[in-house]
């Protein structure tokens, strides 16, 4: 089974460009209905399927996303 991951999104820095949404293999991310203080809809998690692959963070132009992934059990 794939290892589980999680992301932390700095919503105040997010510009709602959707580039991360397109890069996620598990459709974990979507844009919020609310806006941040700059008026941007921001990326948010909509399911718990994150595998910690970091694709979203790597393509995010604004370095908004921090990624965690559980260690392999041994």
């Amino acid at each position: 089974m794939a290892r589980k991951g999680d992301v932390v999104i700095n919503i105040e820095k997010c510009k709602g460009c959707e580039v991360c949404l397109a890069a996620c293999p598990n459709e974990v991310l979507a844009l919020s209905k609310e806006v941040n203080s700059k008026g941007y809809h921001f990326a948010m998690k909509v399911n718990s399927e994150c595998i910690g692959c970091a694709n979203c963070a790597i393509v995010c132009p604004d370095a908004v996303i921090t990624v965690y992934r559980e260690k392999r059990n041994n």
Partner: peptide, 25 residues
């Protein structure tokens, strides 16, 4: 999962914390 030993990606400190002025995307 969200604890420091599981961290796999964060912004490098060689980039400052300033918000980039570039357009979205």
């Amino acid at each position: 999962i969200k604890n420091p030993e599981n961290l796999v990606y964060e912004k490098t400190s060689v980039m400052t914390d300033r918000v980039l002025h570039y357009c979205p995307g």
